[in-house]
Simulated scan of single mutants.
Amino acid sequence: MKNKLVILLVALSVASVTVAQAQQHIKTNNDIGLYGGFTQFDITTDNFITTSGQGWIGGLAASVALPHKWYNVSYTIQIAQNSMGIMAKPNLTSAQEEVDFNMITAQVAFLVHLKVIQEYLTIDVGPMIQYTGDLEVENERQGSYIIENYTRVTAKDIYKISPFNINGAVGVSAGFPSFKLRGQYIYGFTNILNQLNDEKFAGETNTSKFKGNQSMFALTAMIIF
């Protein structure tokens, strides 16, 4: 996974330089930003009963400022560790309880920053490609718990999240040329649970298709060089 991230970062850098060279007859400013912060993550689905959880996020942004335009553009690469809860029970006759799950995501995005107050306040929007790690049970003791709404599907059975997803991101950035705060909402357009449909759960009575879309909110602070 680390090698994949390095390749993506190099690709972003090359793309940024290419844009700058293509517009060399126009004055532009290229910046690099480092940022980190917190996430609120959930999966919107009818299959599971979920609760959102908190995590962390960090990344790198390569920005191209276009003084002659009403927008700027940037390429970002970020890694996040997300958490969420899914209701399950030790056995079919037990009361349900929350099982905590963790998931690592790596995201690459192309963002357009619409200038509301020059570079001090912008609305950010753009597409995002995401690599998603397994959905891991935080407490191994709960791995055999039966997921609510099912009779045979356990917590450890639902680890196979679809590895590649396409998201949309929208947010707001505010601050100064060297420091910004950013709030961003990320929604998954693709079915993040789709790979579970390839699994066979012998004896399971619930045969409905697995379908879910990720929902993430990120609040970050960025230092710009």
Rank of each mutant, 00 (worst) to 15 (best):
M1I: 08
M1H: 02
K2V: 14
N3Y: 08
N3R: 08
K4N: 11
L5K: 09
V6Q: 05
V6W: 14
V6F: 10
I7N: 07
I7F: 12
L9W: 13
V10A: 10
V10G: 03
A11V: 11
S13D: 01
V14W: 05
V14N: 08
A15K: 06
T18I: 13
V19T: 01
A20G: 00
A22F: 12
H25M: 15
N29H: 06
N30C: 02
D31Y: 13
G33N: 08
G33R: 03
Y35D: 11
G37K: 00
F38K: 00
T39A: 04
D42I: 13
I43F: 01
N47V: 04
I49H: 00
G53F: 00
Q54P: 00
G55T: 00
W56C: 04
W56I: 08
L60I: 10
L60R: 00
A61D: 03
A62G: 00
V64Q: 04
V64C: 02
V64T: 02
A65E: 11
H68F: 13
H68N: 13
K69F: 11
Y75M: 02
Q78H: 04
Q78N: 01
A80K: 10
Q81D: 13
Q81M: 14
Q81A: 13
N82Q: 07
S83I: 15
M84A: 08
M84V: 10
G85D: 14
I86K: 14
M87S: 11
N91Q: 04
L92V: 03
D100F: 10
I104H: 02
V108G: 04
F110W: 02
F110R: 00
H113V: 14
V116F: 12
Y120P: 01
Y120R: 15
Y120N: 07
T122M: 11
D124Q: 06
G126D: 01
P127V: 12
I129A: 15
Y131S: 02
G133Y: 03
D134Y: 10
N139P: 05
E140G: 07
E140K: 12
I146A: 02
N149K: 13
N149M: 15
T151F: 07
R152M: 12
R152K: 14
R152H: 12
V153W: 05
A155T: 09
K156F: 06
K156N: 11
Y159M: 12
I161D: 07
S162R: 15
S162A: 15
F164L: 13
N165H: 09
I166G: 05
N167F: 02
A169H: 05
G171E: 15
G171Q: 14
S173V: 03
G175A: 01
G175V: 00
F176W: 15
F176S: 14
S178G: 15
S178V: 10
L181R: 00
Q184Y: 01
Q184I: 04
Y185A: 01
Y187H: 05
N191M: 03
N194W: 04
Q195N: 13
L196H: 04
N197L: 15
N197I: 10
N197F: 13
N197Q: 08
K200C: 05
A202N: 07
G203S: 10
G203Y: 12
E204T: 08
N206E: 04
S208I: 04
S208W: 03
S208C: 07
S208H: 03
K209M: 11
G212I: 12
M216Q: 07
M216G: 02
A218M: 12
T220I: 14
T220Q: 15
A221E: 06
M222Y: 05
I223C: 04
I224F: 12
I224P: 08
F225E: 06
F225A: 09
